[in-house]
Write a protein that binds this DNA or RNA. Structure first.
Lengths: 201, 201
DNA sequence: TGTATAATATACTATTATCGTATAAACTTA
DNA sequence: TAAGTTTATACGATAATAGTATATTATACA
């Protein structure tokens, strides 16, 4: 009756871990399914029992990472500390976690496969919800500008996501980490109400 | 009349540099010729003007590296310093230079392609000559055991080369660098006449 | 132990990727 | 302009990979 209970299957997890390792190292397109199976010590048939194809595995890997990151962010956001400290915590966490996503993994997914695009859109919704709550709380506490409309957030997300790997942005900052950092720093530090600094200073 | 004068051709060097970069990162088998051409900004036809195929490029890259390493080693060996210091210099240099050769680059060449095997044998001869001279000089200076016969050297080289990526050795030291280091350290420190230490101490 | 279930190795076809070459257009350079 | 290069494009041949079917082996369980 319990239909999807292979989450805790060892071979499933082995394939997930091996796939993650290889994808992060070389990017999805360079890795073959047989290579993953061989390294994970799992037969190809078992692979297809768990995953539809290579992209499916990629999405599950991303999904797992996303879940973990969201949980960690949630933990930071629900701490009982001043909002400005929470913001710093969030920024640090975002930078740290995104460094984890190897450049090539990001680059090679972007734009190549349609499934990934669809998946990223769903991830975006989750992030939107989270940041939306974060902004609302910040506005309530008077740390974030009240004039920033919630509807603006999704649009900002789209814009920044487009910025991240645009040719123009790549010229400005060839290093993907630098790109991400500068955008994240802008998003968070750029929207902080300067009157807070006065209060603190 | 000067038949092979493309050594200083810019596109030739670009292909060499790009090939080196990509091969070191992902290994030869993961990289396509078109990928190299695209990244180097050179057309495929031009590639085939310079190189017979991917393996040919690989060999030229290795050859270039080998030449540089041999030259550097020769420079160390011809310095006017005590032989024991020279030995340390050689060891440091060997370790440093071999770290440069990415694990995967070594791994994926080994055993896969026949051309590489032939090429490695020719490299071995060069190394043999160099180390042979080194040993002879060391014996003359009384730093290296005189009982070590020159004929032994080539055999040792073969044995250690076989050791390097053997399954047994991989179990002992999964990290290729560690394998190389331990073998190199053994070769050099293991053959040093202990009486020298007494003299210095 | 015998039976049911699951995993694997193997073989196989269809599809896709890559190689290496041919050709004409575009670009250099004298 | 003219001659030699480089490139873009297309192409067939070949090799790699995906995904599936089947028979065999291993595992669990009663």
């Amino acid at each position: 009756m319990a239909s999807e209970s292979f989450q805790d299957n060892k071979k499933y997890q082995d394939l997930l871990a091996t796939g993650k390792e290889l994808f992060f190292k070389h990017g999805i397109k360079r890795i073959t399914i047989e290579e993953i199976c061989e390294k994970a010590g799992v037969s190809k048939m078992t692979f297809y029992k768990f995953f539809r194809n290579k992209e499916d595995l990629g999405i599950r890997i991303l999904s797992q990472i996303n879940d973990r990151i969201l949980a960690e962010q949630d933990e930071i956001m629900t701490q009982n500390i001043p909002f400005i400290d929470k913001t710093r915590g969030i920024i640090n966490h975002l930078i740290k976690t995104h460094e984890e996503l190897a450049d090539i993994f990001l680059d090679e997914m972007w734009g190549s496969n349609e499934d990934f695009l669809i998946f990223f859109n769903s991830l975006k919704k989750g992030s939107y919800q989270m940041v939306s709550n974060f902004i609302a709380q910040g506005q309530k506490e008077g740390v974030i500008r009240k004039s920033l409309k919630p509807e603006m957030i999704l649009y900002l997300f789209d814009v920044f996501q487009g910025m991240l790997n645009s040719e123009r942005m790549k010229e400005i900052a060839p290093d993907p980490h630098e790109r991400l950092d500068s955008i994240l720093n802008f998003i968070f530090y750029g929207i902080i109400d300067s009157s807070v600094k006065k209060v603190n200073a």
